[in-house]
Simulated assay, not measured.
Amino acid sequence: MESANHTDPPTQEPLPNSDRVLVIMAKAPRPGAVKTRLTPRLPPDTVTSFYRCLLDDTLALALSLRDVEVAIMCPEPDVNELAQLVGPEVSIVAQNGAGLAAGLTSVFAHFAEGRGRRIIAFNSDSPHLPASVLEGAFDKLAAHDVVIGPTFDGGYYLVGAKAAHRALFARDGMGTSTALDTLLSRAQALSLSVAFAEPFYDIDVADDLARLAAELRLAPEKAPRTARWLKEWELSTTQPRAGAAQS
C-alpha cells in the first residue's frame, strides 16, 4: 500500500484578506479516529492511510482555486499534528466543542466575524469533486444566504454562508441520512434563502469506496494520490496469497 509520505500539495500564499474562504473539516489521520464506517471492510491502519490520501488530494483541490483562503477546522487535540502535515500555507483552527456540528458552528463563528465573506465548509473526503462545483458554490453564495452541496445518501458534502447562524447545526453533522432535511428545515425556520450545488457522493462505506475506485481508474488525475492508493489496494486484494494453490 502507498505510505503516508506523500509529496506536499501545491502551495499558495495565505490570503487572509480574501472574501472567499474554503474550510476543510478534517481530523488528524489516526487509526480508529477517521472513516470508521470503513473499518468493517478494512483494517484501521489501512483506513488511516487511505484517509491521508483523501486529505492530501482535498487540500490540492482547495489550493487549486484562485483568490480563496484555505483553512482546516479540526478538534483541538489534532491541531499540531495537522499543522505538521499540511504546512504553513493552510491555517489550522481548533473548533469549540466536540463533534462535527460543533465544528461547523465554529467555522462560521470564526471566519465570518461580521466581515461579509463567503465561507464554505467542505468535507475532507471528496477530492474527486470538480473544482468548478466549488467555484459555482461560491458564486451562488453571493446571491443567497446559504449554499448546500447535497449527497445522494441524505447528507451534504459542503455548506456555505456569509454569517454565523448557530441554530443551523445544533447536534447534527454532514454525513447522517437526515442531515440535509434537518439543515433545510432550520434554514427555512430562520428565513434564510438557500441555493444548491450539484449533488455528489462522499466516501463513507464500502460501496462508496468501490464507486470512487471505478471513477479514478478512468480519471486518476482527479485525485492522484487517492487513485494510486486505490490501485495498490485493489491489487493487494486480488493477488493470490503466498502459498495458495495455483491453477
Rank of each mutant, 00 (worst) to 15 (best):
A4E: 12
D8P: 05
P10S: 12
Q12H: 13
Q12R: 15
E13S: 15
L15E: 14
N17A: 13
D19L: 12
D19C: 06
A28Q: 02
P29C: 02
V34R: 05
K35D: 06
R37D: 10
T39A: 10
T39C: 12
P40I: 07
P40H: 08
P43C: 10
T46K: 10
V47F: 06
T48C: 13
R52P: 01
L54R: 01
L55K: 04
D57E: 06
D57W: 02
T58F: 00
T58R: 09
L61S: 07
L61E: 02
A62S: 14
A62L: 05
L63D: 04
S64M: 03
L65K: 10
V68W: 00
V68P: 00
V70R: 09
I72N: 03
M73P: 00
P77Q: 11
N80Q: 14
G87C: 04
G87S: 05
E89Y: 09
V93F: 10
G97S: 04
G97H: 08
A98G: 08
G103F: 05
T105V: 06
F108Y: 08
F108T: 02
A109S: 13
G114R: 07
R117L: 04
R118T: 09
I119T: 03
I119F: 06
I120R: 03
A121I: 01
V133S: 11
V133P: 00
V133M: 09
L134Q: 00
L134Y: 01
K140T: 07
D145K: 07
I148P: 00
I148A: 08
T151W: 01
F152E: 12
G154N: 05
G155N: 01
L158E: 00
A161D: 04
K162D: 08
A164R: 06
H165S: 01
H165P: 00
L168R: 07
T178Y: 14
L180P: 01
D181G: 11
T182C: 08
T182L: 14
T182V: 13
S185L: 13
A189S: 11
L190R: 13
L192V: 02
S193A: 09
S193Q: 04
V194L: 10
V194Y: 05
A195F: 06
A195W: 03
A195M: 03
A195V: 02
F196Q: 08
A197V: 05
E198P: 00
P199E: 06
P199T: 05
P199D: 04
P199I: 03
D202H: 06
D204I: 14
V205A: 14
V205Q: 15
D207H: 11
L209S: 10
L212T: 11
A219G: 00
A219W: 05
E221L: 13
T226R: 08
A227F: 03
R228H: 12
R228M: 11
W229P: 00
K231L: 13
K231H: 12
W233R: 11
W233N: 04
W233P: 00
E234L: 13
E234F: 06
L235R: 15
P240R: 11
P240T: 08
G243K: 09
G243A: 08
A244F: 10
S247W: 12
